[in-house]
Design a protein around this nucleic acid. Structure first.
Length: 427
RNA sequence: GGAGAGAUGGCCGAGUGGUCGAAGGCGCACGCCUGGAAAGUGUGUAAUCGCCAAAAGCGGUUCAUGGGUUCGAAUCCCAUUCUCUCCGCCA
């Protein structure tokens, strides 16, 4: 959420920049500013009366101590009116504050200066591309057919156990999952990230902290009996580790990585998007999260993008890095780069990673701060995260692009992790 | 799940109705001492909101959370959450 100070001080700029996200903030911002003014004047009055009451109470204490009972009683009568006013004003204040908050959390994050203008994916710009497109024969199979042919992923079985979107990995398919997870984690650790194994369910506060709640609760599986949510990404628990935390300057940047299964309801998805591994309700992902000083967060974003690029290169996949335009960005992001890999048989680019700088938007919700180097004053930190990487679409691309008549080739970097160089029919 | 005990600052820990944002200690920061260090010693050391252009200053709030009693609550009452011990169950 944006800070009220920013909205107050740079009202026009806020409205203007939110237009880039196709968000008309004018009305909302006006309401916020009115409420904010009310809030401050109410608090001002309340503070004054509270102070008066505190003084009287102090006097009563002294009077009682020096045995002047009647005077003390007289003083007590003076408080009645004050207490009434305090009750009214503090009621006003708290309802004002909660209303203000519900409005504030409806404002999306401001896009950074470098975000292209545009209302949908067509306006995204290609940052750079790499790798070679596979040369496949026209009868090349999409990954769902390959998965069946080699008996490595069983979609129907997942249907039986749970439902659509919960595949069962078997044999070399299962081993490939483990290999990718370990490969990604090892690479992240080498790059200085600390491995974390977080809970897979979180409470409401955590869901709010990273921005999934209250609005996007339809995306998460909700365990109603205990009021827990299954995590849609490791970003949620890992970032929430730092909720209500004030980091020391020297602790920045914080670099965490975590492998977790991710659970998403994906309500409303259909068609070729959900075919095979393209979109699942449960999938595996390795995430990287950084908490950084505001002055350095964009350097860090570049560093994270390069890191993820290195992984995709090692897997020898054709990829492109996309700078998302205002209309295609998430609610919470200030700048996002998507990674897409080309799946040769489907002839489609599949999104496998999304690396974002949230600036202080999440940190403000989380109350995640650091101490300034010199003044030692707490200030909001910047949070960043990205997938490194999400498995299913990587697997889809690997299967499709590396199919041969003999089997499916495993990229060299992965062989030490799989223990085999090819997926075969009797593997 | 049942019974009991508890939750205080970065940490430990005192505080059962008044001047307590909270003794003392540890830690940390800056000095003094020292050839240098250790020890010793001095000073400082929460967050947040409002007023103020800002700093200073002043005022409000915060002793798990939410309510209540009272002129006044860390302290009394109620509820919730969490932690610990014992019992039960259990990978």
């Amino acid at each position: 959420m944006l800070t009220i100070n920013l909205i107050r001080e740079k009202t026009d700029e806020v409205i203007r920049r939110l237009q880039i996200k196709n968000f008309d903030a004018k009305e909302l911002v006006t309401k916020i500013l009115t409420l904010d003014e009310d809030r401050r004047s109410t608090q001002n009055k309340l503070d004054g009366i509270q102070s008066e009451l505190n003084n009287i109470s102090r006097e009563i204490g002294e009077l009682i101590k020096s045995n002047r009972k009647e005077e003390a009683e007289a003083r007590k009568n003076q408080t009645l009116q004050l207490k009434k006013e305090i009750e009214t004003l503090s009621g006003q204040l708290s309802s004002n504050e909660s209303e203000l908050k519900t409005l504030l959390i409806r404002l999306p994050n401001l896009p950074s200066q470098s975000v292209p203008v545009g209302s949908n994916a067509e306006a995204n710009t290609i940052e750079r591309e790499g790798g070679n497109l596979p040369r496949l024969t026209p009868d090349a199979l999409p990954h769902w057919d390959l998965a069946r042919q080699y008996d490595i992923i069983d979609f129907e079985l997942g249907n039986k156990l749970t439902g659509a979107g919960f595949p069962v990995y078997k044999g070399q398919g299962s081993k490939l999952q483990r290999a990718l997870i370990n490969f990604f984690l090892d690479e992240n650790i080498k790059a200085g990230y600390l491995e974390i194994m977080p809970p897979l369910m979180v409470n409401e506060d955590s869901g709010f902290g990273t921005g999934q709640l209250p609005d996007k609760d339809a995306q998460m599986y909700h365990v109603t009996l205990d009021n827990f949510y299954l995590i849609p990404t490791a970003e949620v628990p890992v970032t929430n580790i730092y909720r209500d935390v004030i980091l020391e300057y020297k602790d920045l940047p914080v670099k965490n990585t975590a492998y977790t299964p991710c659970f998403r309801r994906e309500a409303g998805s259909y068609g070729k998007d959900v075919r095979g591994l393209n979109r699942l309700h449960q999938f595996d992902k390795v995430e990287i999260v950084q908490i950084q000083h505001p002055d350095k967060s964009y350097e860090t974003l570049d560093e994270m993008v390069s890191h993820v690029e290195g992984l995709v290169r090692k897997l020898e996949l054709p990829y492109r890095i996309v700078r998302l335009c205002g209309g295609d960005m998430s609610f919470t992001s200030a700048l996002t780069f998507d990674f897409e890999v080309f799946a040769g048989a489907q002839k489609r680019w599949l999104e496998v990673s999304s690396v974002s700088n949230f600036e202080s938007f999440q940190a403000n919700r989380l109350k995640l701060r650091y101490r300034e180097e010199v003044s030692k004053k707490p200030a909001l930190a910047h949070t960043l995260n990205g997938s490194s990487l999400a498995l299913p679409r990587i697997v889809a691309a690997l299967l499709e692009n590396n199919q041969t008549t003999d089997g499916i080739l495993i990229p060299e970097a992965l062989v030490p992790y799989t223990g085999f160089a090819m997926i075969t029919r009797n593997g």
